[in-house]
Structure formats: structure tokens, C-alpha cells
Design a protein around this nucleic acid. Structure first.
Lengths: 175, 175
DNA sequence: ATGAAGTTTCAGAAGTTACTGAAAGTTTAG
DNA sequence: CTAAACTTTCAGTAACTTCTGAAACTTCAT
């Protein structure tokens, strides 16, 4: 199916490589559990590569094992609905893209800048730190809501602006 | 500076390559405009590579030219504050990561599925489409707020959950 | 215990991306 | 118009990533 190939290409942009993307697409779009061999055959990739890809998808917690009692083979299914999967991807990417930077920034901000140039740079670093902390807190918050409430909130869409309008009123209401 | 090198590494995760990341860090952390030659010297990279990197950063609208009247040389400065830059990166990544998928999904959803397997797959594709549309609308919404209000909203953090609690009341209030 | 049915690992081949440096192009002062 | 001061392009090379397929390993039925 054409979608599988496309998600392969997109996969590379979403943090894993082409084949891993295709494997994921195949598993998500099949509601039936699928075996490693079937995946390798369908995508015409080597059995070894398939195994590596599945291992990576499991480490991302996007895919999970499904053992059929009589069968020796291992089957694979998606580790949740679409919203859950998207959440996992975002969470994992945050871990890779934001957390290491945040931890370095904390270290750098401990140093007292010597000259004026460094002082300016430090100020910028502080702004970046502030931004990333906000994103982190925000993401934890959304995580806590769980997929269904998150979907509701997202679809609310147009009312985000209104939150700000109501902000002061809410504050006054909860002193 | 160590931060510059680190942002280089992070750069690759944020959508551009190591040197482009370092160039960006250098420009952002210097409040003084900086010339291509200075960048090449500081990072010990070739003049050609520097030129390519700057071109890419300009295409992302993260960096802009700053022409000093007397001087022949071109200087570079960041194209806005940190929040603006982060926004640009997200916008550009959305363009690359979400928009092409969304457009493919629309095409695929026009086809009527023939068998039961395809029907199931189609259902999943529809869910994904729905998710990506929500993200897109959400992102447009946030874009419209502008950096300063966005920062306020983000720092609000803990009250996101409350928005949902108030959702019904707001609805009743605005019939 | 044995071997059939499966999975994992890994060395090297193939493919991809990034970098250099030299050559070509552009701009402006004189 | 020319030359100096700069920028851009590009072919080739270096560095990195992905993929294969064969060998090693694991598991389980008999």
C-alpha cells in the first residue's frame, strides 16, 4: 500500500529511518498482529534489518509483542491508538532533543560570566533555558491529561485565545 | 564557547546539520552582528560550508542580513528573539514533517476501500488525518497569538487542565 | 539430547550526506 | 573599466548511516 511507503519516507523526519517507518506503518495499519517474517516479505527487506527495526520500535514503545499461544512465532501490534503513539513519539523526541540541551544549559548558567560579551550570551542562554523549561512543563501537563482528554482539548482549537482572556478572571476566582 | 558546540550537536536533531547548528548558535549568542569570515574562523570550517550554512539559515528565516553602511562585508544577526526563532523552527518542521503526510492522507481517503482489511486501514488513516489536522489548527492558533502572549500562555502551564473543566461553563456562557 | 523454527548479531557492502578548496561569479571603490 | 574584496557554486572526497546475509544463538516439541 502506498501509505506504507510514504510513512517510510516520513519516518526519517519523525526520528527513525525509512525502513523503521515502513515497519511501523505496516503494523499500525494492520489490525491483525503480523510476524517479523511477513514484514520482511511485504517490504522486501532482509530478516536482519527487520529484527533491528522491530527492536527500535519496541524501544520507542510504539509496538509491542503479541504472543499467540499455540504459535512459536512472535507477532507484533501497535502499542496503543494513534493519539497514544503520537504522544510516545513526542515524548521520545523531547528526551533526545530537549533534555540534553536543558541539562547543559543548567551547567552553563552556574558559571559567572567574566566579560560583557559573556554576560550577553548568558542572558540569551537563560532565555533559551526558560523556553525549554516551559515546553517541558507544558508537555508533562498534557501527558497527564491522557489521550482522550488531550484530543478534546486539541479539537477545542479556536478557544485557546480565550483561555488568556479568562486568565485574569480565573486568577481572581482562585486566590 | 561550549554552548556553541553543543548546539551544533543538537542542531542535527532540530532539523539542520551540525555546522548549521553551530553557526546559528554563534549568531544568536553574539548580540553584535558577525561576518561570514568570522564565523568560518571561529568554527574552523571552510568558507564555502559557511556560505551554505548561512543560506540555509536564511531560508529558515532564523538569521537575517545586516548591512553596515561603510562596510562591503555582509553581517548576520538573529531574525528575532528566542521565542520567535523557536516558532520559526516549529513552523518549518511542520511544513516538512506534517504537511506532505496530510496531503497524501487526503488523497488516500478519497479512494473507497475494496476489502475488509483496507476498510480497517482506511479507518486508521482517517484517525491519523484527524490528529494531524488538529495539530495544524492548534499550531495556526498559537502562531496567531504572537510570541509574547504565547510565552504567557505557556508559563500558565498548570492551568491547562482547568481549561477543560471550564469548557462546559464557557460553552453555556456563549450560546 | 536433537533438530527444526525461529531470533539476534555483526562485518562489510552500498548508499547517503556533509565538507573542503579551488574556480567562477558579484559588487563596488576608484 | 579594473581590481580588490568579498560571496557562491560545485566536483570530488571523507565521514557517517543503513542494509544485507551468513553465522551464532535461543526455544521448544519430540
Amino acid at each position: 500500500m502506498s501509505a506504507v511507503m510514504h510513512f517510510g519516507e516520513m519516518g526519517s523526519r519523525w526520528g527513525f529511518n525509512r525502513t523503521v517507518g515502513q515497519i511501523l506503518a505496516l503494523i499500525v495499519l494492520n489490525d491483525k498482529p503480523i510476524s517479523a517474517q511477513e514484514i520482511a516479505d511485504t517490504l522486501s527487506i532482509s530478516r536482519g534489518n527487520t529484527s533491528m527495526g522491530l527492536k527500535e520500535l519496541q524501544s520507542w514503545q510504539l509496538v509491542k509483542l503479541h504472543i499467540v499461544p499455540g504459535e512459536r512465532k512472535e507477532f507484533f501490534v501497535a502499542a496503543g491508538d494513534i493519539w497514544t503513539l503520537a504522544n510516545r513519539v513526542l515524548e521520545e523526541r523531547k528526551k533526545r532533543e530537549i533534555d540534553p540541551t536543558l541539562s547543559l544549559l543548567r551547567d552553563l548558567l552556574l558559571d559567572t560570566p567574566s566579560n560583557t560579551t559573556d554576560k550577553q550570551a548568558q542572558k540569551k542562554l537563560d532565555e533559551i533555558h526558560d523556553l525549554l523549561e516551559s515546553v517541558t512543563r507544558w508537555s508533562e501537563e498534557l501527558q497527564r491529561l491522557g489521550p482522550d482528554k488531550l484530543a478534546t482539548l486539541m479539537k477545542l482549537g479556536a478557544s485557546v485565545g480565550k483561555v488568556l482572556e479568562f486568565k485574569d478572571k480565573l486568577k481572581l476566582g482562585n486566590p
